[in-house]
C-alpha cells in the first residue's frame, strides 16, 4: 500500500500532536518537570489574562480592516489587470504579484526599514511634503495600520490571481448580453461579475479570515522579533498566535500554550462555520 508512508507521517505529525495537545492543555507543564492535572485551569487563566484581551482586541480591529480592505484591493487589481490585453495584462499581473513571491519575513523586514523614523523611505517622502517624521512602528496610533499595510501589500497579489482565474471563467456571452441590454460597465460588474464570482469571492474571504486569525510573521518581525520582546509598545501589535508562542517558548508554559491553540482553533472553526452558514443564506435568496 503506497498510502502507508503518508498516513504514517500524517498520524505521527498531525493526529498525535492534536491528541497530545489536548492532553497538555489540561495540564500544567513546562517541558521539564512532571505534569500536573489542572482541569480547565489553563483555559481559565488564558481567558482571564490581560494579554489575551489585548491580543483579541487587536485581532478584532486588524481583521475588521484587513479582510475587507485586502479583498477589495485584490478585486480591484484583478479587474484592472483583466481590463488590459495580452502583454500589458501580463506585465501588470506580474508586478502586482511580485510581493507574494517574497517570503513574509523579507516583506516585513523591508517594510521595517521603509518605516524607519527620519531616514526611512516613507518618512523621507512625507518630508518632501513638509511633514514631520513619524515613528510608525513605535507609535501606538499607527502601529496597527502599518502592519495592515504590509499585510495587504503581501497578500493582495495572491488573492488577485485567484479572482483573475475566476474572472476568466465567466463566459463572454454574459457581458455581451448585458451590453445589448444596455448595462453600463459598473452595472456589468455589479450584476454579472460579482454574482458569477460569488464562489471565488467566498473562498478568498473565508481563506482571508482563516489566515488573518493566525497572523504571526509580519507583526512578529515588525516588533521585537524574539521571545523576550514581541508585540511592540504597549502590546499594540500583540496577536493571539504571538501570545501563544510567547507563553510556550518565552515562559515555557506549554500547557497554557496548547490550551491557547485550542481556543484559537475554536474561534477559527466558529468563523468558518459562520461563513458557510452565511453562504447558504446567500444562496437561498
Amino acid at each position: 500500500m503506497m498510502v502507508f508512508p503518508f498516513m504514517l507521517l500524517f498520524a505521527v505529525f498531525f493526529l498525535y500532536p492534536i491528541a497530545s495537545g489536548l492532553f497538555y492543555s489540561f495540564h500544567d507543564w513546562n517541558a521539564t518537570t512532571s505534569t500536573r492535572f489542572v482541569g480547565l485551569g489553563n483555559y481559565q487563566r488564558i481567558l482571564a489574562s490581560r494579554d489575551f484581551e489585548k491580543a483579541m482586541w487587536n485581532l478584532g480591529k486588524y481583521i475588521a480592516i484587513t479582510v475587507p480592505l485586502g479583498i477589495s484591493v485584490a478585486f480591484g487589481l484583478a479587474l484592472l489587470v483583466n481590463s488590459f490585453k495580452g502583454f500589458w495584462s501580463n506585465i501588470f499581473r506580474s508586478a502586482f504579484f511580485l510581493p507574494v513571491v517574497l517570503p513574509a519575513f523579507l516583506a516585513a523586514t523591508v517594510w521595517r526599514w521603509i518605516y524607519t523614523p527620519n531616514f526611512g523611505l516613507l518618512n523621507m517622502i512625507l518630508g518632501w511634503f513638509g511633514m514631520g517624521s513619524i515613528n510608525f512602528l513605535n507609535d501606538t496610533g499607527t502601529m496597527l495600520y502599518a502592519a495592515i499595510a504590509v499585510d495587504v501589500w503581501v497578500s493582495a497579489g495572491f488573492n488577485m490571481v485567484i479572482i483573475l482565474a475566476g474572472l476568466k471563467n465567466i463566459p463572454k456571452d454574459y457581458y455581451e448580453a448585458a451590453r445589448l441590454d444596455g448595462a453600463s460597465r459598473l452595472q456589468q460588474v455589479r450584476y454579472i461579475t460579482i454574482p458569477m464570482l460569488y464562489p471565488v469571492l467566498f473562498f478568498v474571504t473565508t481563506y482571508g479570515f482563516i489566515s488573518a486569525l493566525q497572523v504571526f510573521d509580519v507583526p512578529w518581525l515588525l516588533t521585537g522579533s524574539s521571545f523576550a520582546s514581541y508585540g511592540g509598545r504597549q502590546g499594540a501589535l500583540l496577536f493571539p498566535v504571538m501570545d501563544m508562542m510567547g507563553r510556550g517558548f518565552g515562559s515555557l508554559r506549554f500547557g497554557q500554550a496548547a490550551a491557547y491553540g485550542f481556543i484559537l482553533t475554536a474561534i477559527i472553526m466558529l468563523f468558518t462555520a459562520a461563513m458557510f452558514a452565511l453562504r447558504r443564506k446567500g444562496y437561498d435568496r
Binding site: V3, F10, F13, M244, T265
Partner: peptide
Amino acid sequence: ILFATVMLSLMVPTAVTIIPTYLLTA
C-alpha cells in the same frame, strides 16, 4: 474515512498543532 480526515486537517490551523508537534519533535 482516511480521505475525509486528511481533508479536515486542511481546516485545522497550524496554531493548534505547532506546539505539540514541537514537543513531539523534541
